[in-house]
C-alpha cells in the first residue's frame, strides 16, 4: 500500500528529493547517451581509423584518472555514512579529499589535452584536417566533446560538493537532513559512471 505524507511547512521530503535527483541523473545519462550513439555509429563505420587514432591517447594517464575518480567516489560515499554516524569532522575531511581528487583529475586532463594541442590536434586544426583521415577527425572530435563535457560535469559536481561541504560545516546538512549531501553523492557517482564507459571506449582500443 502506498503511504504518502504531506509536509506542509517546511516542505521537506527526502524521498522526493532523492527521486528528483535520480530523474535528473536519467536526463544526464541520456545526454551522454546521445554522444554514445554518435560514437558507436562512427566507430562501426571507421574501425581501423579509430584504432589508429587511439594510439595517440596514453593508457597510463587514463587508468590513473579512472582510479582517481573511483577513489573519489568511494570517499564521497563514505562521507554519507559518516554524516549519518554524526561524525562531522570525518564528513568534512572526506568531502575535502573528494574535491582534491576531482581537482587532480582536472589537472591531469589539462595536461592530457595540452599534449594533444602540442601535437597540433584540436577540433578543426589544420594538422587534423590536412594530414589525417576522416575517421581520425571524427575520433578526436568525439574525444574532445565527450571528455570536455565530462570535465564540465566534474566542475559542476565540484561546485555541488563544495556547497554540500559548506552546509555540513554550518550544520544545516546533518544526520536528519542529509538530502543535499546524498544528492551531491549521487551526482558525483554519475560522473564516475560515465567515465567508466568513456575510459574503455577511448583509451582501450587495440
Amino acid at each position: 500500500m502506498e503511504h504518502v505524507v504531506q509536509h506542509s511547512d517546511p516542505h521537506y521530503d527526502p524521498e522526493a528529493s532523492k527521486l528528483g535527483m535520480w530523474l535528473f541523473i536519467f536526463t544526464e545519462l541520456l545526454l551522454f547517451g546521445g554522444l554514445f550513439i554518435v560514437y558507436s555509429i562512427y566507430r562501426f563505420l571507421n574501425p581501423e581509423a579509430f584504432q589508429m587514432a587511439a594510439h595517440e591517447l596514453n593508457i597510463t594517464i587514463g587508468a590513473i584518472n579512472t582510479i582517481i575518480l573511483l577513489v573519489s567516489s568511494m570517499t564521497i560515499a563514505m562521507s554519507t555514512s559518516s554524516l549519518q554516524q554524526k561524525n562531522k569532522g570525518l564528513t568534512v575531511l572526506l568531502l575535502e579529499i573528494t574535491i582534491m581528487l576531482a581537482l587532480i583529475f582536472l589537472i591531469n586532463k589539462y595536461f592530457e589535452w595540452g599534449v594533444k594541442f602540442e601535437h597540433g590536434i584540436w577540433p578543426g586544426s589544420q594538422h587534423l584536417i590536412n594530414d589525417m583521415g576522416q575517421g581520425e577527425i571524427l575520433f578526436f572530435g568525439l574525444y574532445f566533446v565527450m571528455t570536455g563535457l565530462h570535465a564540465l560535469h566534474i566542475v559542476i559536481g565540484m561546485i555541488i560538493i563544495i556547497v554540500a561541504l559548506r552546509r555540513v560545516q554550518k550544520g544545516t546538512t546533518h544526520a536528519d537532513r542529509p538530502s543535499l549531501l546524498e544528492n551531491a553523492g549521487l551526482y558525483w557517482h554519475l560522473v564516475d559512471l560515465i567515465w567508466i564507459f568513456l575510459f574503455p571506449l577511448f583509451y582501450l582500443i587495440h
Binding site: 567516489s73 568511494m74 560515499a77 553523492g185 549521487l186 557517482h189 564516475d192 559512471l193 567508466i196 564507459f197 575510459f199 574503455p200 571506449l201 582501450l204
Partner: peptide
C-alpha cells in the same frame, strides 16, 4: 572491455548509489 565496464557500473549503481 564493455563487459567489465558494465560490471563496474553495476557495482557503482548498487553500492555507491
Amino acid at each position: 572491455a564493455m563487459i567489465f565496464a558494465t560490471l563496474k557500473s553495476i557495482l557503482v549503481l548498487t553500492w555507491f548509489m
